[in-house]
Design a protein around this nucleic acid. Sequence first.
DNA 1: GCCCAATGTCGAC
DNA 2: TCGACCTTGGGCA
Length: 271
Amino acid sequence: MPEGHTIHRLAQDYAAAFLGTTPHVTSPQGKFSDAAELLTGSELTRTEAHGKHLFLGFRAADWIHIHLGLFGKVNFGDAPAPPPTDTVRLRLANSTAYVDLRGPTTCALITPTEKQAIHDRLGPDPLRADDDADPHLAYRRISRSRTTIAALLMDQKVIAGVGNVYRAEVLFRHRIDPYRAGKDITPAQWDAIWTDLVELMREGVRNNRIDTVRPEHTPEAMGRPPRVDDHGGEVYVYRRANLPCHICGGEIRTADLAARNLFWCPDCQTP
DNA sequence: GCCCAATGTCGAC
DNA sequence: TCGACCTTGGGCA
């Protein structure tokens, strides 16, 4: 379930359970065994997220860099940890808690220099808005690009942390057709999108799920049944192909864009 | 059991 | 533009 909000939440959760402790580090699946051995006995001193990248800082040995990709999952539990299944890439366990990582695209030990290189190739992250994120850096690229805004929002060099759900939802909330070119997004529109993403994604971190529907459009307010979907949140268009738009009642459309599913309401969102 | 899809990214052609 | 990679869960036989 990995968009940026998930990763920032994980940074918090790893910290809550393990910061200041020296967890036992293992890799039951094997692919991280050498590094796990190096790290056992070292204190977890920092956790950090930038976009969809998670960094766990250990006193002894630099950083663990984690990227969940499309399938990666993390599962926390209370000690004592049960025997791990053979797909667990990384387990941390201390006297009170354990956490298992499965299916990540990346789980690697990196140096501060390598970590910096990752930051350098990522765009501003709305969830770092109080720290180092500068939305104008994103707009500089967007305003010069003939690429669609839908593709630009998914480009982590442009803006870090937005995925397929936030992409679809924020474009709906701002009534922007996903195929509009980046250069046709005005500064005011970009400011509004960025501000909205900061708020939506912060709420995503708090609730650990994506909700984008405004109070006046909630199922209760509109007298419709609550959404039932395994991704958990209440949304306007994501995975709602062929269903009626919450606002205009028209049919939500779907299409392939750069090998991802795009969803939008052609009536509410203008070219 | 098999087949498919899924909130992601990279590299080869 | 396409396949590869990583894993799980749901639908269907």
